[in-house]
Amino acid sequence: MDRTEEEFPGIGAPARRALNRAGYTRLEQLDGVSETDLLRLHGMGPTGTDILSDLLNARGMSLEP
């Protein structure tokens, strides 16, 4: 398991690559990021943002709607 799989568990490879290309390598970096902005990333879809939202909420953080 690579570091991005550890940071973004349950996220598919295309979405992880999209996050990395955008400079997101740690879950904490997504706190306050717009869900709309994430959906604009090639490879990121609604399932990915739902998973990220759940992961963030579990740590007391969130995406912006």
Rank of each mutant, 00 (worst) to 15 (best):
V33C: 04
N57E: 09
D31Q: 09
P14V: 05
V33F: 05
R16T: 00
D54M: 14
E28S: 14
M61T: 14
R3Q: 06
L38K: 01
L30P: 01
L52W: 02
R17I: 08
E7C: 07
M1R: 14
A58D: 08
G48L: 06
D54Q: 15
D50Q: 13
G12S: 10
L27Y: 02
S53Q: 06
P46V: 15
L56I: 09
T49C: 07
T25K: 09
L41F: 08
G43N: 10
I51E: 00
G32A: 12
P46S: 14
E35P: 13
T25C: 03
H42G: 05
H42R: 15
E5G: 07
D50Y: 06
H42E: 14
A13K: 11
M1N: 08
E6G: 12
G10I: 04
M44F: 10
Q29T: 08
P65Q: 12
H42K: 15
P14G: 01
D50N: 07
L41N: 01
L41T: 03
S62F: 03
L19M: 08
E6Q: 15
A58F: 04
T49K: 07
G12A: 14
L27E: 04
L39W: 04
N20Y: 08
A18H: 11
R3K: 13
L27K: 05
Y24V: 02
A18W: 09
L19T: 03
M1I: 11
D54K: 13
M1S: 11
L63G: 06
L39N: 04
N57G: 03
I51F: 00
R26K: 11
E28A: 15
D31Y: 02
E64S: 14
M44A: 10
L27V: 04
L38S: 03
L19P: 03
L63D: 03
R3H: 02
E28I: 15
R26I: 03
S62W: 07
E5D: 11
N57H: 12
E35M: 15
N20S: 10
G12I: 10
P46L: 15
R26C: 00
V33W: 06
E35A: 15
L56P: 01
A13Y: 01
D37K: 13
P65V: 07
E35D: 15
T49N: 07
T4D: 14
D2C: 10
R17K: 13
F8A: 12
L19Y: 05
D31L: 06
L41I: 06
G10V: 02
G32F: 10
L63A: 04
L39K: 11
E64H: 09
D2I: 10
L39M: 12
R59L: 04
A18K: 08
